[in-house]
């Protein structure tokens, strides 16, 4: 009797993952970096910690675009510390943008699931086990983190940024009815073949790229699960949300509105 009680009180994540039939699953985390020298070691450490605790099989693929601040050199150190089976460096010579960074990283991914996240510590690896649990629960093609539902939220945003974010989200929901609450967030888990298909179809850049992925997913009848996440604005490095971003967001939104 007592032993039953003990095993029941163990946190789910500590139990043998085989129990949930995920022994064969492998999760490839794509980390695109550009000038993330400060953040990269920390995010990698948190990822390793999260995966070690949850016991899932994983690899971390770092795609650095020739950052002038020496991100690549730090990445090489991390590869030595954590092992080249866990940390894979797939750098490119120059800054070619996020979309192609994902394509590049995916070519080298050996997992059957891909996790995409930012390396700037605004996405916390502690949510990954929840993503995986959610995926299993509904057998979803995509699991998207959301700042706009349940316990989700943000930290470090002023009123103006909140208004822009909520306003943009509302307009997007009304115009596109996408079936997911956070379109511009980029913390997501995909089945590998689903991500491959989606990336082939997507043409836009920047914030709009994340939005287009969900819109195309809806068109292709992929299923989407959601997990509330807390988004902590970057501590180190430059942030950029200017008039330019807003204009290109609106342009992208209207393009999707007219074409999908």
């Amino acid at each position: 009797m007592a032993s039953v009680g003990v095993s029941r009180s163990l946190p789910r994540s500590r139990r043998d993952p085989e129990e949930r039939g995920s022994r064969r699953d492998k999760f490839s985390v794509l980390l695109p970096t550009y000038n993330e020298r400060e953040n990269l070691p920390l995010i990698v450490w948190l990822l390793v910690k999260s995966f070690t605790e949850s016991g899932f099989n994983y690899e971390i693929i770092i795609i650095d675009d020739g950052s002038p601040d020496g991100t690549r050199e730090v990445a090489e150190q991390l590869e030595n510390i954590f092992g080249s089976d866990k940390i894979l460096l797939r750098p490119r010579e120059k800054k070619l943008g996020l979309g192609t960074a994902y394509i590049h990283g995916m070519k080298h991914a050996t997992g059957n699931y891909i996790i995409i996240m930012d390396a700037d510590l605004s996405h916390h690896p502690k949510f990954i086990p929840e993503f995986i649990r959610k995926q299993k629960e509904g057998n979803f093609d995509i699991v998207s983190g959301t700042r706009y539902k349940g316990n989700g939220g943000v930290y470090g945003w002023d009123l103006k940024r909140k208004i822009i974010s909520r306003g943009a989200n509302f307009i997007t929901q009304v115009l596109l009815r996408p079936g997911a609450s956070d379109l511009t967030g980029s913390f997501r888990l995909y089945r590998k073949e689903v991500l491959q298909k989606l990336i082939e179809k997507c043409v836009s850049k920047g914030y709009v790229f994340q939005m287009e992925m969900i819109v195309r997913a809806r068109q292709l009848n992929y299923t989407i699960g959601e997990v509330p996440i807390s988004f902590v604005d970057r501590v180190y490095g430059e942030s950029k949300l200017g008039g330019n971003e807003i204009v290109s967001f609106l342009k992208g939104l209207l393009t999707l509105f007219a074409t999908t």
């Binding site: 150190q77 939220g153 943000v154 930290y155 974010s165 501590v235």
Partner: peptide
């Protein structure tokens, strides 16, 4: 809009922890 004070605090302590551990592991 939910302000995630706890998450920010937790991240700060984890950053300290990570730094210490990484230095121990030989990261420059």
């Amino acid at each position: 809009f939910h302000d995630c004070e706890d998450a920010a605090l937790e991240l700060q302590t984890q950053i300290q922890e990570a730094r210490a551990d990484l230095v121990r592991k030989g990261l420059l």
